[in-house]
Amino acid sequence: MNSYLIFSYAGVALCGIGVFGFIFHSHLIKRLIAFNILSNGVFLILVGLAQNAQKQPDHLPQALVLTGIVVAVAATALALVLIKQWYAISQQTTLPEDQEHQ
């Protein structure tokens, strides 16, 4: 049963990698990829920890993660549309304040 806990630790590691990428990358699409990794990490923790605590496959967090994945796709699509529009106008793939130490 403690295999659920192992996956929660995997979720924690994904969160760490996601946070690192989110803060480190100034390239907008890479920052968006890091955000997706972070959200996958949070979902792993949500299901892994809940099922470890309940000691059985718990349906509610799985439904929440389904909703979360769809919201994450919506966020990614919105960010990509904005990034492309930003690139079309300014020929930059990073935000203005991140450009100087490129």
Binding site: S3, L44, I69, V73
Partner: peptide
């Protein structure tokens, strides 16, 4: 997600998480 006894999420992750998100990223 299969190992975590969550077949629904496995389906959704493969279809939406890897599929649609991957297409959108490659397109961008």
């Amino acid at each position: 997600w299969i190992r975590l006894d969550a077949p629904d999420i496995a389906l959704a992750e493969a279809a939406i998480g890897a599929g649609i998100t991957g297409i959108l990223f490659l397109n961008a």
